[in-house]
Amino acid sequence: MTTTVPQTDQRSAIVTGASTGIGEATVRALAAEGWRVFAVARRAERLESLAAETGAIAVPADISEDDDVARLVAAVVDAGGADTLVNIAGGARGTDWVAEAKTEDWEWMLRSNVVGTMKITRAFLPMLRANGHGTVLNLTSVAALVSYEGGGGYNAAKAAERAMTRALRLEEAENNVRVVEVLPGLVKTEEFSLRRLGGNAEAAEKVYEGVEEPLTAEDVADIVRYAVTVPHHINLDEIVVRPVAQAAAHKLIRRHA
Rank of each mutant, 00 (worst) to 15 (best):
T4S: 14
Q7F: 03
Q7L: 06
D9F: 05
R11N: 14
S12Q: 11
A13Q: 07
A18E: 08
S19H: 02
T20E: 12
G21M: 00
E24T: 04
E24N: 09
A25W: 04
A25H: 05
A29W: 07
A31Q: 09
E33A: 08
R36N: 15
A41I: 01
R42K: 05
A44H: 06
L47K: 10
E48I: 00
S49P: 00
A51N: 14
A52Y: 00
E53L: 11
E53R: 10
G55Q: 06
A56K: 07
V59L: 13
A61Y: 14
S64K: 04
S64T: 12
E65Y: 02
V69D: 03
V69E: 02
A70Y: 01
L72M: 15
V73N: 04
D78F: 08
A79G: 13
G80N: 15
G80K: 14
G81N: 05
D83F: 01
L85V: 10
N87P: 12
I88P: 07
G90Y: 06
A92Q: 06
A92I: 03
A92E: 11
A92K: 08
T95L: 07
D96A: 06
D105T: 02
W108E: 04
M109P: 12
L110N: 14
L110D: 13
S112Q: 15
G116K: 04
K119L: 10
I120H: 10
I120Q: 07
A123V: 08
A123C: 14
L125A: 01
L125C: 02
P126S: 15
L128Y: 03
R129G: 01
G132L: 01
G134H: 03
V136R: 01
L137Y: 14
V142C: 07
A144W: 04
L145K: 15
S147W: 01
S147G: 10
S147Y: 04
E149D: 05
G150V: 11
G150Y: 10
G153M: 14
Y154V: 02
K158D: 07
A159T: 10
A160K: 09
E161Y: 01
R162D: 11
R166E: 06
L168G: 03
R169S: 08
R169E: 07
E172N: 02
A173F: 09
N175S: 13
N175A: 11
N176Q: 05
V179W: 06
V179F: 08
V179Y: 04
V182Y: 10
P184Q: 09
G185F: 04
K188L: 04
T189C: 08
T189Q: 08
E190S: 07
S193K: 00
R196P: 03
L197V: 07
N200M: 05
E205K: 00
K206Q: 15
V207H: 11
V207A: 11
E209G: 06
E209F: 04
E212C: 02
E213L: 08
E213P: 01
E213M: 10
T216Y: 07
V220D: 03
D222P: 02
D222W: 08
I223N: 02
V224R: 07
Y226V: 04
V228A: 11
P231D: 14
I234P: 10
V240H: 03
V241Y: 06
A245N: 12
Q246K: 08
A247L: 11
L252K: 13
L252Y: 14
I253D: 13
R254W: 00
R255W: 13
